[in-house]
Design a protein around this nucleic acid. Structure first.
Lengths: 151, 151
DNA sequence: GTTTAAAGTCTCGAATTCGAGATAATTATA
DNA sequence: TATAATTATCTCGAATTCGAGACTTTAAAC
C-alpha cells in the first residue's frame, strides 16, 4: 500500500519532468528558430552548415549521425544548401560510394557573419540560469539522457 | 579582455546546454514514442486524447493551447481520432462557433488500458535520476523555460 | 575469383506540422 | 441597428521528416 503510493508519486514526478522538459525546450527552440530564420535558414540547415563550418568537410553519412537526422533527410537538406551555394558536394576519390559535403566561400562568409550573433542569441535566451546552474543542469541532463538512450 | 573571455565562456556553456537539452529530450521522446506507437497512436494523438481523458470535453481551440499545436493541426489530429472512434465532435449549443471534442466509451476504455502502462514506461525511461534530482531539475527547467518564453 | 554481405547515397511516397486565408458566428463600437 | 473587430474552426498548399527500397561500390567469406 505504502509501496504503491510511493510508486504513484515517482511516476507522477517522471511525467511532470517529461512535460516540463518538453515545454522548456520548445520555448527555447521557438526563440532559436526565430533567430536562425532571420538569417534565411531553418534549424536543420543551420545545424548542418555549422557542423561543416566548424569540423570541415564531412561524408554525407556522418552528417546524419552528428545532427541526428535520417539519411533521406540529409539528401534533402544538403540539396537545399547546395542550391543556396553554401555547400558543395565533392565525390570521394578513394571510395566512390562516398560524397563529401564541403562549405563554400559564400557559406564561410555567411557563418563568419551569423555564428557569433547566434551564440549571443542563445546566451540571451538561456539567461534564466547562471553559469553554475547551467553546468549542473548539463550534468543532470546527461545522466537523464544517457539512461534513456539504452534499452 | 577578461570581460570578453568570460562572455565567451558563458556563451559556450549556453550553447552546450542547448545541445544537451535537445539530445536528452530526443532520447526520451524516441522511447516514449515507441511506447505510444505500440498502442496504435502517435505522440500528438496521445497527448490530445490524454488531455480530454483527464480534463473532460474541450473546445477544439483549447486543445491547441494546452498541447501547443497550431489550430490547423488540431483539425487534422481530431479528424484522425474521430475516425478511430476515440473522440467525437459535439457542436456547442450556446456558441455556434465552437465545437467540443469529447472522448467516446471506446476512447475511455483504451485510455484506462494504456495510460497506466505509459506512466510506467516514462518512469522507466527517466530512471537516470532519483526523485529528488527530478524535482530539482523540474524547478530549474521551469526557470529556464520561463525566461526563454518572454522576449 | 565468385558470391555475399555491408555501406553510402538517393528516390519515392506517406505522415505530420505549419501559415495564410476562407467562412461563419459573436461581441464591441459608433 | 449597422459596422467593425474578434473568435473559432476549417481548407489548402508548402515544408520537413521519415522509412522502405533502389542502386552502386566496396569488403568479406568461401
Amino acid at each position: 500500500m505504502e509501496q504503491q503510493t510511493n510508486k504513484q508519486k515517482e511516476e507522477d514526478v517522471s511525467l511532470k519532468l517529461f512535460v516540463v522538459l518538453s515545454r522548456a525546450l520548445k520555448s527555447i527552440e521557438r526563440r532559436a528558430e526565430e533567430d536562425i530564420k532571420s538569417y534565411g535558414l531553418n534549424p536543420t540547415e543551420f545545424a548542418v552548415l555549422e557542423l561543416i563550418y566548424s569540423k570541415g568537410d564531412q561524408p554525407i553519412q556522418k552528417i546524419g549521425e552528428k545532427v541526428l537526422i535520417a539519411s533521406s533527410s540529409i539528401t534533402y537538406v544538403v540539396d537545399k544548401l547546395e542550391k543556396k551555394n553554401y555547400l558543395e558536394r565533392k565525390s570521394c576519390p578513394t571510395d566512390r560510394r562516398v560524397t563529401h559535403a564541403g562549405i563554400t566561400a559564400e557559406g564561410t562568409e555567411l557563418m563568419n557573419e551569423i555564428f557569433p550573433k547566434h551564440r549571443e542569441a542563445i546566451y540571451e535566451i538561456c539567461g534564466g540560469l547562471d553559469s553554475n546552474e547551467k553546468e549542473f543542469l548539463i550534468h543532470q541532463l546527461k545522466k537523464l539522457g544517457y539512461h534513456a538512450l539504452k534499452k
